[in-house]
Amino acid sequence: MILEIERPLLELESKIEELRKLSTDGRVDLSVEIKALEQKVEDLKKDIYSNLSAWDKVQIARHNGRPTTGDYVEAMFSDFFELRGDRRARNDLAILAGIGVIGGRTVAVIGHQKGKNTKDNLKHNFGMGSPEGFRKAGRVMDMAARFGFPIICFIDTPGAYPGKEAEEKGQYEAIAGNILKMMSLRTPIICMVIGEGGSGGAFAIGVGDHIIMLENSIYSVISPEGCATILWRDATRASEAAKALRITSDSLLKIGLVDEVIPEPEGGAHRHPEEVFSRVKESLIRNLGELCSIPGEEMPKRRYEKYRKMGVFKEENG
């Protein structure tokens, strides 16, 4: 998958590659030309990536080469044991859950799991959770709290699955139940938005003590397409909606709904995943260290205060 914004960049890069090949054949010295093109790439990168629109970020956040929950788990955890099923009906592969070790500490991990290609995406239902997935997440959270394991949630979903069976099994109740549970758990919860934070389906594993977003991830109450359809009956105006909804990490940090933003390497996480893994790992270990020094029973009180303050309104006199 090639993003429109990075097309000119990729073209230049392949040209450099060609020149390099010619150079190594030894016939001609193209080092001056290569150097000039490399400079051009640097300039172009600065130009593109310092002016990303909200809609550009939506495309980066949805990029199919972007690291998924499973990639983070594999790269950052010294051990991981997957926990499957909701103990009621089914194992929903849109949600990955388990216990793992990071920085020498055992933690519970819960995340939306997207696929890398169509086949993979069908298996994981594009990371769109069903009630069984949210209930699996819920039982793993309960277990984590019982053993005092902190919980790390990776958020990356277009939204909760809008399917017939999902509704029959109480999609809304599954989401509400997790939100209530996460408000009350006596263990630290860190939420990391790594790609798409799609509304209720994201928030079902999104309540926590420290909310982190990757620079080019997005978090929204409704998809830009959905918003444009409702407002203007025109899904093609999604880029306008993306801007109006303030769904980017910098906007959300500014208004205090997110606590930390992790910068991505130039071009986005899909271009340099290893660098992203190490930054995310550093942040997780640092935040775990801070949150784990707070007694468990304090956590629900702190969380109450945190969410109690969220919202903007005016109170008129009498």
Binding site: A176, I179, M183, V221, I255, Y304, Y307, R308, G311
Partner: peptide, 17 residues
């Protein structure tokens, strides 16, 4: 409420609190 963006999503946690 769409027009309040993410503030609205946060109300799901606030009300459940």
């Amino acid at each position: 409420r769409m027009q309040e963006g993410m503030y609205s999503l946060m109300q799901l946690a606030k009300t459940n609190a």
